[in-house]
Design a binder for these strands. Structure first.
Lengths: 185, 185
DNA sequence: TCAGAAGTTCACAGATCAGTGTACCCGGGA
DNA sequence: TCCCGGGTACACTGATCTGTGAACTTCTGA
């Protein structure tokens, strides 16, 4: 991707996430990234393609944050809930909920690439939970992974409320992991 | 509200929920409800006000469904998780996630009435969980209510995924309620 | 009988939207 | 020297957006 292309995606990320996709016009993105609208269309072809690139880039950044949090854990039982620690970090600078859920809300057409990217992101996290739960020796890793995913998404969705939902979610996540893990690791 | 007003809100509900708020124009809503755009503006004054009415109406319908599910329960311990049964019913005809979360995604301005309505809806459910948990004699009803809220919102947010997240969420909800409730009710 | 509320008809304003066409500039590599 | 890719400048299209003005009809209740 060219330097101008990177600036466009960066501006699109900030604007799409904070103001909504439909509400942000390509003219504004071009202006914010110090680029002509012509350049934007030469690079991405359409607004839909730019939206897909924005989501893919965001997904990439978020996955690397989660992976780092998991790798920082020595104890395999603690590692299962490491994504919740990553979420705490992530939420400090991302206070408008989940970009993927938000994108699906605005783009009802299931054939839009945003749907595939969003689904892949959630399913990736679910399979990560399952892997980690299996590695920690948890019983019923499938159901556990789904429950951890729900807690994760719920904590993200309730972000705008004046409640510390992330703490209570993390507590519950740790509790169900410990309950499923072998007693004395 | 006049007959035309009711038809407008009904059309707005269907269109806003399924296609997104910004993506739906007032012309389309007027056409679908068999009404002139002039009438729409005479009744609601602005699109923002119509959006607020749509959300308020949806909230009203949803609360009455939840209340009915709770009142159907004889056992106070079962009653705590009755909103999850209501969600199962609700999800059969509402497959595009939470209308309130989706609205917040599109309307970033916190002074928009949609933000107040959405927050009130979530906090109402949380306080309902707390009331029910207290009535069932659960210990730590505050934290339990937040955890049940997170599970509820998480199940709703993961609706588009090819996973039965509602079942696993409901199972976990029942488990934590039973764990907190007095042993032999 | 008459007033007022609800609704229609239709043209219109002013802004914004995604996307295009064309001509041009500039730097680096063959 | 020349070419070409990345980028600029800028006008423009055609559609769509929210919202308004003004005159008209139709029904109902006092």
């Amino acid at each position: 991707m060219t330097p101008a292309g990177r600036r466009i995606v960066a501006a699109a990320e900030e604007l799409f996430y904070n103001r909504g996709i439909t509400a942000v016009g390509v003219d504004l993105i071009a202006e914010r990234s110090g680029v002509t609208k012509r350049t934007l269309y030469n690079q991405f072809g359409s607004k839909d393609h730019l939206v897909a690139t924005y989501l893919a880039e965001r997904d990439r950044r978020w996955r690397s944050l989660v992976r780092a949090a998991v790798e920082d854990c020595d104890d395999p039982v603690e590692a299962v809930t490491a994504p919740f620690d990553a979420l705490r970090t992530w939420s400090r600078t991302n206070t408008r909920g989940c970009a993927f859920i938000n994108a699906l809300a605005e783009l009802p057409d299931p054939s839009h690439p945003a749907h595939r990217i969003a689904a892949e992101q959630k399913l990736w996290l679910q399979s990560l939970f399952k892997e980690l739960a299996t590695a920690a020796g948890c019983s019923a890793p499938d159901a556990l992974a789904v429950q951890l995913l729900v807690l994760h998404e719920g904590a993200l969705a309730t972000q705008p409320l004046p409640l510390d939902t992330l703490s209570d979610s993390t507590d519950l996540a740790r509790a169900i992991v410990r309950a499923g893990a072998p007693p004395h690791w």
